[in-house]
Deep mutational scan, measured.
Amino acid sequence: TTIEWNGTKITVDNPQKAKELAKKIAKKLGLTVKVHGNTITIE
Rank of each mutant, 00 (worst) to 15 (best):
V33Y: 09
H36F: 11
I42K: 01
V33E: 01
T2H: 10
E43Y: 15
T39W: 07
I3W: 04
A18D: 00
L29A: 05
T39C: 08
I40A: 01
I40Y: 02
T11L: 12
G37D: 05
G7L: 06
E20I: 12
L31C: 06
T11H: 14
I25Q: 00
T8M: 15
K27A: 12
T2P: 06
L31W: 11
I3S: 06
I10E: 01
K9A: 07
A26G: 05
K19N: 07
V33G: 01
I25K: 00
I25A: 01
V12Y: 06
D13L: 14
T8K: 15
K34D: 02
N38K: 04
I42V: 06
K28E: 13
E20M: 13
L31N: 02
T8H: 15
H36E: 12
L29M: 06
G30D: 02
L29D: 03
T11K: 09
K19I: 15
I3V: 09
K24Y: 15
N6E: 09
T41W: 14
N38T: 08
K28S: 07
N6G: 12
K19T: 08
G30Q: 04
Q16N: 11
K17G: 04
K34P: 00
I40L: 08
T39M: 09
I42G: 00
V33M: 11
K34L: 08
T1K: 03
W5A: 05
N6R: 08
I42P: 01
V35Q: 08
T8D: 05
E4K: 09
L21Y: 08
T2Y: 07
K17A: 11
L21K: 02
K17I: 11
W5D: 03
A22W: 02
T1H: 09
N38I: 05
E4R: 08
K28Q: 10
I25H: 01
I25M: 04
V35P: 02
T32H: 10
K9P: 03
K23A: 12
Q16T: 11
E4P: 06
L29T: 12
T1A: 11
L21I: 13
I25V: 03
G37M: 05
P15V: 10
N38P: 03
V12S: 02
V12Q: 02
H36W: 08
E43P: 06
K19G: 04
K23C: 14
T2I: 14
G7P: 05
G7H: 08
T41C: 08
T32M: 09
V12G: 01
P15A: 11
N38F: 05
A18N: 00
L29F: 15
L29V: 04
G7W: 09
K17P: 01
I25S: 00
L31K: 04
K28T: 07
H36S: 12
K28R: 12
I42E: 00
T1L: 10
T32Q: 10
T11R: 10
G30P: 01
I25R: 00
A18P: 01
G37F: 04
K24R: 13
K27M: 12
L31V: 09
K34C: 09
V33P: 02
N6C: 15
L31S: 03
I10R: 01
I40N: 00
K34T: 12
G30F: 02
H36A: 09
K9F: 13
A26H: 04
Q16V: 12
Q16G: 07
T8E: 06
V35H: 07
D13Q: 14
I42F: 14
K19R: 12
I3G: 07
T11S: 09
L31G: 14
T41A: 05
H36Y: 09
K9N: 06
I42W: 03
I40M: 03
L29E: 04
E20L: 14
E20F: 10
Q16A: 12
K17W: 12
L21D: 01
Q16Y: 12
E20Y: 13
Q16W: 13
T32C: 13
E20P: 01
P15C: 11
P15R: 10
A22C: 02
W5N: 04
V33D: 00
W5C: 10
W5K: 05
K23L: 13
K9H: 10
E4Q: 11
A18Y: 03
E20C: 01
H36G: 03
E43N: 08
I40S: 00
G37Q: 06
V33I: 14
A22G: 03
E4D: 09
A18T: 02
E43F: 15
N38L: 07
A26L: 04
L21S: 00
I10V: 07
G37S: 03
T8N: 15
Q16D: 11
V12N: 01
K19F: 15
T2S: 09
I42H: 01
K17M: 11
N6I: 08
